[in-house]
Design a protein around this nucleic acid. Structure first.
Lengths: 346, 346
DNA sequence: TCACAAAATGAAAACGTGTTCATTCACAAA
DNA sequence: TTTGTGAATGAACACGTTTTCATTTTGTGA
């Protein structure tokens, strides 16, 4: 009844707090801005009154004048993917501690991006944008965003996005996959694998392309045959079917190197539950990512880990540095990968 | 170089568009507001100029005067959980289509909520808030939020939150678990299960409490023994250990009814890979949720499905109706559950 | 042509905050 | 007491938009 209407009217404003505490509205603003000069006792009194009135500074109004929204935009194709959901979770926690809120935008599963979405996102004026979707080229993103500097995750080949026009500014997280892939190949070779199949991820994914390239390079360096390449899309079902085809229509393989852990699960299940083969005795399997499910007993997957904590720390570092120095030269953080040995190889 | 500085200055405003198109700033505002009265040709010209200048209305400024932020806050304890990540994904997609962006807030894993987080969230003035965390009581949330009306997901027992103070307004999504649980129990009984164990979820979770209560009720109605209750927390590892304890220290069971699918996976793996028992021959297993992994061949889990699409549609419906009629009486949407039969029972 | 309703238009006010800048205050040193 | 220095203070402005309201233009029927 009146209860609610009152409550609605009770959306406290800085003016009301000021009146109640017998100070100017500016003082209230200063009370919420730690490094503003204000008599301690006065600040305490103001904060006390603010608490009583249930007052919080309005972010929209604040954003309007400071030019900082305290929002970090994340462009993701698939929140359900264990890998991405892990990253969103950790990133949100870390950014929250720094005073930023996560703004989520979903793009279509094929990574295609509705240009209206970018327009829409820009309206919110995010302080920073992380693009989990690799085919939104820096050119496009930088052109759309005005204030925020996007962060790109790239793999091995530093020359990626070389086609970007000069003058665009974006920061990079460079993931060195070479290490992990080398360790994996060495292990496979040690256990006598000769015919290795690469079970790909999404065709449009640059991460996948680079993963495949680095695998080929590594095999060549060790004098091994080029891999059989299977098309995939990072999903369980596609990996499952691709594996069946490989052994029923194709000529099979000694080992399967999957572009991601979920794909590796699909391959393992196809081998064990439909082809009657055993892992690792008949076929060895290696994954990529090291998601939590990788240690589940049914899979117990040997996989190349991209350390989540390290990755999130690096991203947060990039965001904070860029906000501190908006015009600094492009930054690059580097990350290594390493093999986690479990039960699907030896 | 100058390129960037220019681009930064080029953050187009409605005034600039107006000047460039020889119209008033008000006309620009109207051009972006579909139901405002404006000569079509004029609107076209304005939108054309806006596109050239890369202009988008600033959401913060708009929010300040309209009182709508176009933000929907989501309070989640764990983005990584397959169930929640699915829901966030689908909800974000649906809301995005309606012009809302998702604002993510993470609470600690034990569901405890930092009061500062609520304060912080309120600063963003979300148009709506969905609480995935059940122990933030409506009283607290309504007291903190001024404009937004929270949505609560409740289970079976409509009397939940009855302790909430009168005058608080919140909408509800009521999930009827009884159906699905009855079907599951019927199936288990049909296959001769007598000693049933309930593998619980988080102790603080009301969903878990209600699931346990309804299971007990259903067993009693069918004249079966009360279940053995195992403590859990919705995670794989805890479920794994609890299952080991049940069979090594405890007296075992015919069937395990898990509070969620991930817990069921842990139970299955413990049974098969460590206890040397087979599922479903020695022990039957039923899960809850029907996450995508449930159909993976390694588990092929029989489980109680809470239909995701239906659930998301209901939530979106609640949000939109509440925004249209902020003072309407509390709304309740109802959802049924049903058993999905796969390979872990018969 | 006139009258009248309806649509189109723009000036000004409003939303709630941070920041500038000139002023006042407090206190220690001369 | 005087001077000087730095902290504390508040009035006014700025941020970019929507909304109100009074005015002008357009369209329609007599």
């Amino acid at each position: 009844m009146n209860d609610r209407a009152d409550k609605k009217a009770a959306r406290a404003t800085a003016d009301q707090v000021a009146r109640e505490a017998n100070v100017s509205r500016v003082a209230v603003s200063r009370a919420f801005n730690p490094n503003a000069s204000l008599k301690p006792e006065k600040r305490d009194r103001i904060l006390q009154v603010a608490r009583e009135l249930n007052y919080t500074p309005d972010m929209a109004a604040r954003s309007l004048v400071t030019g900082r929204s305290h929002l970090v935009g994340m462009i993701v194709p698939d929140v359900c993917s264990p890998w991405e959901s892990q990253e969103i979770d950790a990133l949100t926690t870390a950014l929250q501690a720094e005073g930023f809120a996560t703004l989520l935008f979903k793009v279509k599963a094929d990574f295609s991006m509705d240009p209206r979405l970018l327009t829409y996102m820009r309206g919110f004026n995010p302080d920073s944008v992380i693009a989990f979707t690799e085919n939104i080229l820096p050119d496009v993103l930088c052109g759309f965003l005005d204030r925020a500097v996007p962060i790109y995750v790239i793999y091995d080949d530093v020359a990626q996005f070389a086609g970007a026009a000069s003058g665009t500014l974006y920061d990079r997280l460079l993931v060195r996959q070479k290490n992990g892939i080398e360790q994996a190949v060495a292990l496979l070779q040690g256990y006598g694998a000769r015919r290795i199949a690469y079970l790909g991820g999404k065709a449009q994914s640059l991460a996948n392309a680079e993963r495949e390239r680095t695998l080929k390079e590594t095999l060549a360096e060790r004098g091994m045959d080029a891999p059989i390449v299977l098309a995939g899309d990072y999903t369980y079902d596609t990996a499952y079917r691709a594996t069946l085809d490989l052994f029923r229509i194709g000529e099979g393989a000694d080992a399967i190197f999957a572009a991601n852990d979920v794909g590796a699960f699909g391959a393992i299940d196809a081998l064990r539950h439909e082809l009657g083969l055993s892992v690792p005795e008949d076929v060895k399997v290696v994954g990529f990512d090291d998601i939590p499910q990788a240690h589940w007993k049914s899979y117990n997957l040997t996989t190349v880990r991209i350390d989540l904590d390290e990755r999130v720390r690096a991203l947060v570092r990039l965001i904070l540095m860029r906000l501190r120095a908006p015009d600094a030269a492009p930054l690059t953080e580097t990350l290594n990968t390493r093999l986690i040995v479990r039960g699907t190889v030896g």
